[in-house]
Simulated scan of single mutants.
Amino acid sequence: MKIKKSEIVAVAVKPAQYPPDDMVEIAFAGRSNVGKSSLLNLLTGRKKLAKVSGSPGKTRTINFYLINDAFRIVDLPGYGYAKVSKSMSADWGPMMDKYLQGRQGLRKVVQLVDVRHEPSKQDLQMYEYLRHYGLDGIVVATKADKLSKNQLNRNIAMIRKSLKLGPEDVVIPVSALKKTGQEELLTVIQEILED
């Protein structure tokens, strides 16, 4: 699969601001600073489609991107960043609930984790949440260029164990810097769209 066309179509904090629920959506979730914006830019081949921020926790909206006029990628706000105010953290849960429970077109949520570290408590909670809604099964291990091949394999095994992944669940190591892993992820996205 090749992404030839991508554009932002909505920036939302509540359902009234979502685009019509009329096509397949694949959402991306992860801790603040996990490299979500960099990954979305890598997938779409556009340097500035998703804004990469120097201050983590910047995405506090749900951003909808129309891809190839055929489906949407949805960038969910990052979680687990300490400097985000308590009221902002409290808003995050209900905003996510409304989106994850209410969207007919939502097929999967790709969860991003930093391959260098064991998944955090929030990562574990998020994955449990996705499992509860049947949106689990795809994990992207970001910043793969920071580890040797042996460390990478060891850490992927650790991620699989921590998140209690089954053999059918996919973990894709990705490096936005080295531009690796995106082909594999695009293939998985293609399979979801064809399912």
Rank of each mutant, 00 (worst) to 15 (best):
A157I: 07
Q151T: 00
Q151N: 06
E128L: 05
Y129R: 13
A157L: 06
V139K: 01
V140L: 04
Q151Y: 01
M158K: 05
I159F: 07
H132G: 09
K149P: 08
M126K: 07
Q151G: 04
I156K: 04
Q151F: 08
R154A: 06
R154C: 00
L152T: 01
Y127I: 06
A157E: 15
Y129K: 10
L135R: 01
V139F: 01
R154W: 01
R160Y: 12
Y127C: 06
D136Y: 15
K146W: 00
L152M: 05
Q125H: 09
K146I: 00
Y127K: 06
A141W: 12
H132L: 08
I159C: 03
R160I: 07
L152C: 01
L152N: 04
I156T: 00
I156H: 02
T142N: 11
N150T: 08
Y133A: 10
R160E: 14
N150Y: 03
L135T: 10
L135S: 10
I156S: 03
E128A: 14
R154M: 04
V139E: 07
S148I: 02
R154Q: 11
Q125P: 00
L130C: 04
R154P: 00
L130G: 10
D145M: 03
A144C: 09
N153Y: 00
E128S: 14
L130M: 10
D136I: 04
I156W: 05
I138H: 05
R131S: 14
Q151C: 01
N153H: 00
G137H: 11
R131G: 14
N153M: 01
R131Y: 15
S148Q: 08
E128I: 04
S148W: 01
R160T: 11
L152Q: 02
N155E: 12
K149L: 07
R154T: 03
L152R: 06
L147T: 05
G134A: 14
N155I: 02
I138C: 06
E128P: 02
V140I: 01
I138A: 03
L147H: 07
E128N: 12
R154V: 01
T142Y: 10
A141M: 09
R131H: 15
M158S: 01
G134Y: 14
Y127H: 13
Q151A: 09
A157F: 13
M126Y: 14
M126L: 15
I138R: 02
D136V: 08
A144E: 06
K143T: 11
G137E: 14
V139M: 02
V140W: 02
R160V: 13
M158F: 00
L135H: 07
Y129S: 10
N153L: 03
I159Q: 08
Q125S: 09
N153P: 00
K143G: 11
H132V: 05
A141K: 09
D145P: 04
V139Q: 09
A141P: 11
A141S: 15
R154F: 08
L135M: 12
D145T: 06
I156G: 05
G137D: 13
R160C: 08
Y133K: 11
V140C: 03
I156N: 07
G134E: 11
M126V: 15
Q125T: 05
A144M: 05
G137F: 10
R131Q: 15
G134R: 10
I138Q: 04
D136H: 15
I159R: 07
A157P: 01
Y129N: 13
